[in-house]
Structure formats: C-alpha cells, structure tokens
Amino acid sequence: MTVLQLVNNWFKNFAYETQNLFFFSLRLVGAFFSRRWYVTETMEQMYLIGVGSLYLVVLTGIFAGQGFAFAFSVELADFGAKNYLGRIMSIAIIRELGPVLTGLMFAARVAAGITAEIGAMKSAHQIDAMVAFGIDPIKKIAVPRTIALVIMLPMLTIICDAIALLGAWVIAVFVAHVTSTMYWSAVRDRLIFGNLFIGLMKPVVFSFVIAFIACYKGFASKGGTKGVGQATTQSVVMASITILIVNFFITRVVFSWIKGYL
C-alpha cells in the first residue's frame, strides 16, 4: 500500500467516524427530549462517576496546585513579586488547570469505564436484548451517563480548584513565605465573573465531549473482547485530545467575548 493510499484511507476513516459521531450525538441529544426518565440509573451513575472519581480529583488537585505554586514562586521571587502568587494561581487554576486536569482525569477514568461497559454489553448481545424488549439503549444507557457527567464534572472541577488553591497555599505560606492573608486576598481578587464563567463553562462542554465519545465508541465497538479493548483505548485518546483542543478554542473564543469582565 502506497503512502498516498494510506493517507486516503486515513481521511476516509476520519470522515466516516466524524459523520457517525455527529449522527450519534444528534440521537443522544434527541433522546434527552423523549419520554421516560431513568432517574435511578442517573443517580447511580452520578455516584459512580462523581463520588468514585473524588479521590482522583483531590490527589490531582493537591499535587498539581503545589507543583505549579512551587514553580511560580521561584520565578516570581526573582522579580520580588511573590505576593502575586495567589493572583497567578487563581487565574491558572480556575481558568485552565482545574477544568483541564479534571477533564483529563475523567477522560481516563470515566470514558474508559463507559466505553468498556457499553462495549461488553454489546459484545454479549445485551444491547440487542434491550432493543428486543422495546427499550432505547441510548435513552437507557447513554442519557443517564451524560446527565451524570454534566452534573458531576463541574462539581468536581470546583472541588479540584479549591483543593489546588489549598495546595498552592501550603507552598505559598511554608515555602515561599507569603503571608496567608496576602495569598487569599490575591486569590479572591481574581475570583471575578469572567474567570468563574470560563472555569465553569469548560467542564460542562468537556462533559458532553467525554459522554459523546465514550458512549459512541462503546456502541460502535465490534470484534469481541479485542474490539472492546481497542474501543476503550480509542475512547480515552480521542476524549483527551478533544478536551485539549476544545479547551484551546474555548479560551481563545470566550476570552475575546468576555474581555470586559476580566
């Protein structure tokens, strides 16, 4: 196979996948507005997705916050600007680090779990059995997971932000020797509408990205256990990359919209 053919095949597959993902997303959004709500399933997923990811988010937040605070404090000390540490950490964590790190953690843990679960159900003909019993598998499986993600990801992002700021505070006070009052006052200065809006909008968008990709990959998986494994890997990679790309565009576009509030 020539390089040209390989490139051609890659583009064809990419276009095919994008088209399928688009149509799947339309079906998923359509299912939100159809009759019947699976409240119990949604609550169960909120627990599994949200509470189950809490330790991961806490650990990520505390160490990322400390790491960044340490790196910034050294640089700021050179300029005699250590007092700005709280301000920088507040912007970095709320706008970027918190949403992206939580999103990536979710892409790794939750997207993998959702894809593997749906893929295994498909492989065992459980999805077919559902359809045979007159149940829409997208409504029953994908919608509760999407709702759970949309609710839990922003909440965990807020927790991640808070923990990261706390981790940064430890470094600020005990390593950089910034007073606690100065640090929190600088943090509070940047807790303004624009930053909070971006910081909370991102996880909502990321949650849809993760849900669409994870569910789509699960439903589209084929080829038994090997196929489920491949779908799971693709789901995590695709969700992670998409989160980073979407994050850039949100920052770029929304930043220009709400410049006046920053």
Binding site: A124, H125, Q126
Partner: peptide, 27 residues
Amino acid sequence: IRKKIGMVFQDGALFDSLTVGENVGYY
C-alpha cells in the same frame, strides 16, 4: 411487532448486573 416475538439470544444475553429475578421480570 417485537411484542409478538420472544428472542433467546446466544448464551442468553442476560443482563449481568441484574439478578435472575430482575432479568426475568425485566420487561
């Protein structure tokens, strides 16, 4: 139409997170 048809899939295709009672009473 599907209400008129009962299907027994290969290996049963039972919902593995549900008990036998919940599987039988699924519909």
